[in-house]
Design a protein around this nucleic acid. Structure first.
Lengths: 224, 224
DNA sequence: ACCTGAACACCGTTCAAGT
DNA sequence: ACCTGAACACCGTTCAAGT
């Protein structure tokens, strides 16, 4: 995995996308820490300072990575009609795209999301909540509530995994959690010890949709 | 701020708490990156390797820091009676304690929360949701929904701030956001451009409580 | 048990220089 | 415009040694 992969064809200058590709490959393989400037350069077969031809600093790379993944989300998940189904589809799409690159997930919660793709995603949320009957202010508040929930759930899901690299299948992760929760002392934490079977599924799709539907349900009482 | 502060009194051995105190001081002053092993050691007046007498590695320090701050939350915010008021008070308390140390916030979303204080907090949530009339499974799902919301909102609030150190007053941050949103192109993002006044308040207390109340409202339909 | 000296294998970033 | 050589000021962690 440390082998340098150059793009096919004759020798040519790099691009910003080459840098982002390399960063994503490294993060997928060895976790978030692996995407260092020096290792990215190594992947591309150049010296570390060559990377600064394409990005001002490491923060700029991380910001561009966020925009790229949000772009994938916006490209998929078209609006099909009903606001509720659209929002569920969008939320599921965001989770699928981000969880595919666990090492990139912390970037979404460690910097302001104000790029074009972030704006486009926000615009889509506002549009669907308008269709849901929310007024301007309630729509704006609701859109942020959804983003907080989606990003928070994805971050906690990824953080639950101790190992670097791509996540194991969901069923496997839930089984591992169920085993770990077996050690909870029932005398000190009775309700927790009695609910470990449900808690094991917290990082799963069912819980994700359950929580999302609580939010969408609550919007019903806000129609103007 | 780089001046070494030793504890008062005669020379004595350090403690785990001394290390955590130093780490928090550094993070509060210069952001999350400042809490390096080497700078912590400098604060304490010892060489870097002395820190390894008290913690196995840097991850252990971060884990202990999370537990310490959760302990502060658990120590405050007692139950006063109504489940709704209790949960709101608890959520507000968590936000106050974590936002006071912005540099520590990312730690809550970058590692599994399974220490004693995390368990105690979870137990309290399960207890209050039981009082709300939720059955065992719905209570467990609801407790996680609240944690996802609370941690996600706090993380995004802190991430919105570009500068290291303690956060400016809320009104100041909202005003800065309102100014920044003025640049949104209304032709490409019409709904966004029309809602910037509300979006500026996304990182404020009103939005935080608004979102929390949507969650609590949705629990009403789940009483068994 | 608690701490130091010295080292190893890394970081991000910058400056000057080359083509 | 695009890349390299060399350096600066950092990291986390470990090993051996001292008291």
């Amino acid at each position: 995995m440390t082998e340098a992969r150059r793009r096919p064809g004759p020798k040519r200058a790099l691009t910003q996308d080459d840098v982002l590709d390399a960063a994503l490959r490294l993060m997928d393989a060895d976790g978030p820490v692996a995407a260092s400037i020096r290792r990215i350069a190594g992947e591309l077969g150049v010296t570390p300072n060559a990377v600064y031809t394409y990005f001002a600093d490491k923060a700029a790379i991380e910001q561009a990575l966020v925009e790229r993944l949000l772009g994938e989300v916006n490209a998929a998940a078209p609006a099909t009609g009903g606001w509720r189904a659209d929002l569920e589809l969008l939320a599921v799409e965001i989770r699928a795209r981000l969880v595919a690159h666990p090492g990139a997930v912390p970037l979404f919660l460690s910097g302001a999301m104000n790029g074009p793709q972030a704006l486009l995603l926000g615009e889509r949320l506002l549009d669907r909540l308008s269709a849901a009957g929310l007024d301007r202010a309630a729509g704006a508040r609701g859109a942020y509530l959804i983003m907080v929930y989606v990003l928070g759930a994805i971050a906690l899901e990824v953080a639950d995994q101790p190992h670097a690299g791509v996540l194991p299948p969901e069923a496997e992760r839930i089984a591992a959690r169920a085993a770990a929760w077996g050690e909870v002392p029932a005398d000190r934490f009775p309700r927790t010890a009695a609910a470990t079977d449900v808690m094991a599924t917290w990082i799963g799709t069912d819980q994700y949709l359950w929580g999302l539907r609580r939010l969408l349900d609550s919007f019903a009482g806000l129609r103007s």
